[in-house]
Deep mutational scan, measured.
Amino acid sequence: AVSDRLIGRKSVVMEAISPQNSGLVKVDGETWRATSGTVLDVGEEVSVKAIEGVKLVVEKLE
């Protein structure tokens, strides 16, 4: 599936994300709604860990 190619990809937070609120990330020039178990600020680099419905699950790059 097209979405499977996103797992493991680097992306950049475009709208802040917290455990309570989804935000936005940009992956390969496309904007996606995303969630995370931690707070992520605009501009942080993250990695796509999973896809749940139409949202990406991301975490901060170490």
Rank of each mutant, 00 (worst) to 15 (best):
E59L: 06
L61P: 07
S47V: 15
I7R: 06
S22N: 10
V25L: 04
I17E: 01
E62L: 12
V54Q: 14
K60F: 04
G37A: 14
A1G: 11
M14K: 05
N21S: 13
M14Y: 10
G43M: 03
K49C: 12
I17A: 03
G53Q: 04
Q20C: 14
K55D: 08
V13M: 02
V54T: 14
E44S: 07
V13P: 00
W32H: 07
K26C: 15
K10G: 06
G29Q: 07
G43Q: 03
K55Y: 15
K10C: 14
P19Y: 05
R5A: 09
S18R: 07
E62T: 12
K26F: 14
E44W: 09
E30N: 08
N21G: 10
V12W: 08
G43R: 03
R9Y: 07
I51K: 05
I17M: 04
V13K: 00
R33I: 15
I17K: 02
V42G: 03
V25P: 01
G29T: 06
S18I: 07
K55E: 13
G43I: 01
L6G: 00
I51H: 05
W32K: 00
I51E: 02
D4L: 13
T35F: 07
V48F: 03
A1K: 12
E52P: 02
G43C: 08
S36W: 05
A34I: 00
D28C: 15
V48S: 01
A16I: 09
V25D: 02
T31I: 15
E15S: 11
K10H: 10
R5D: 08
G29Y: 05
T31M: 13
T35W: 07
K60N: 04
V27E: 00
V48G: 00
P19E: 05
T38L: 08
V27C: 08
S11R: 00
A50N: 06
A50F: 07
V42S: 04
V46L: 01
R33F: 11
K55C: 15
L6T: 02
N21L: 11
V42A: 07
K26G: 07
S22Y: 10
V27Q: 02
V54R: 13
G43L: 04
S3F: 14
I17L: 04
V57D: 00
G8Y: 03
A1I: 12
L61T: 09
E45S: 09
V48N: 01
M14I: 15
S47T: 15
E52D: 14
I51F: 07
S22R: 04
S18Y: 08
E30C: 13
V39G: 06
K55W: 15
R5H: 10
G23E: 03
L56S: 02
A16S: 09
G53K: 03
E45K: 08
A50S: 10
V57I: 10
A34Q: 03
G53W: 04
I7N: 03
R33K: 11
S22Q: 09
L56A: 03
P19S: 06
E30K: 10
S36H: 00
S22F: 09
G8P: 03
V57L: 08
I17F: 03
G43D: 05
V25W: 00
V2M: 13
D4H: 15
I51S: 04
A1R: 11
G37S: 15
V2C: 13
G29I: 03
S47M: 15
G8C: 08
K60W: 04
T38A: 11
I17C: 05
V48H: 01
V48D: 01
A16F: 09
S22E: 15
Q20K: 10
E30G: 06
Q20E: 12
G8N: 06
G23I: 02
S47K: 14
G29M: 06
G23A: 02
S47A: 10
A50M: 07
A34F: 02
G37R: 12
N21R: 15
R5F: 09
S11C: 15
L24A: 09
T31V: 14
P19I: 05
G29F: 05
G53M: 04
L24S: 10
I51P: 00
A50R: 10
M14D: 03
A50W: 07
E59F: 07
E59T: 08
G23W: 06
V48Y: 02
E30Q: 11
R5W: 10
T38K: 07
L6V: 06
M14C: 10
D41V: 12
A16K: 14
K10S: 08
V57A: 05
R33H: 11
E30W: 09
V2W: 14
P19V: 05
E59P: 02
S11L: 09
V42Q: 06
E45N: 08
R33D: 08
V58E: 01
M14T: 10
R5L: 09
D4Y: 09
A34N: 04
K55F: 15
L24W: 12
D4R: 14
G8V: 04
K55M: 15
V54W: 14
W32S: 00
S3Q: 11
L40N: 01
I51V: 12
S11A: 15
L56W: 00
T38H: 12
S47D: 06
A34L: 00
E52V: 13
E45G: 05
I51A: 05
P19Q: 05
E44Y: 05
T38Q: 15
S47P: 01
V46F: 03
T35E: 08
V42P: 07
V2F: 12
I7E: 00
L6M: 08
P19H: 05
